[in-house]
Design a protein around this nucleic acid. Structure first.
Length: 213
DNA sequence: ACATTAAGTGATT
DNA sequence: AATCACTTAATGT
């Protein structure tokens, strides 16, 4: 049975998934899930049971080091998916990452058993998966040299831009503490750097809010 | 008005 | 750049 509402939302957000029969199969087997802001979709060590196609909102992806520090990796915007979940579920491996709803989100969840089949059956699914990988790989390379080679101020700017772009707003609702947590830096450092950015006219600051220019 | 939480500061390592 | 020890400002009750 094809779920018309899923079909509709799929076509709207994932034009790349073009084959009609594939769209129908997704609408037939996928389920719409909603999560509220701040909810953890997937934690470290858990098994992935569905592939999420994000149709609303933004998901934040975090990595944890051996001391339990979390560091922000990237955002999954609407109209995209989590490339890591493909490998994760195909290999039946535990998740190496944690994903949190950055705002209220909706996803179409596809049971993992369809992955193998669709890869060979549908050209556009294969392309979709490959593109997801490519995107993520490029982003990760960026993220790596952010962390490895850039100073905190550049990382902060980067983070703000990514976050505003991912969520489609220049106003970032977050405390300095939360930002510091994502960047694995101290709150004071973030405060001081934000202050500098404000002096340079790049941002405007108020409580719980950073406005990006 | 008071308590709580976010943000700012300066010193120290 | 992190941590500490405060101070000051903004907000909720």
């Amino acid at each position: 049975m094809v779920d018309e509402s899923i079909l509709e939302v799929l076509q709207k957000n994932f034009p790349r998934i073009a084959e009609k029969s594939l769209q129908e199969e997704i609408a037939e087997n996928g389920k719409l899930f909603k999560y509220r802001e701040g909810e953890t979709l997937m934690d470290f060590g858990s098994y992935v049971k569905i592939i999420p196609l994000v149709v609303k909102g933004t998901i934040k992806v975090l990595r944890e080091d051996d001391e339990g520090n979390e560091i922000f990796l990237y955002f999954i915007k609407k109209g995209t998916t989590c490339a890591v979940s493909f490998t994760c579920c195909m290999m039946r491996k535990r998740s190496e990452i944690k994903t949190v709803a950055e705002e209220d989100i909706e996803i179409i969840g596809i049971p993992i058993r369809f992955m193998d089949l669709w890869m060979t059956k549908y050209q556009s699914w294969k392309n979709f998966v490959m593109l997801a990988y490519e995107d993520r790989f490029n982003e990760l390379v960026q993220t790596i040299d952010n962390i490895a080679f850039k100073k905190m101020d550049a990382r902060l700017m980067d983070y703000l831009h990514k976050r505003s772009e991912a969520m489609g707003t220049t106003t970032i609702a977050a405390t300095h503490q939360q930002i510091a947590y994502d960047l694995n830096a101290s709150r004071e450092a973030v405060s001081r750097l934000l202050k500098q950015l404000e002096k340079q006219g790049k941002v405007a600051l108020s409580r719980n809010k950073v406005e990006l220019f």
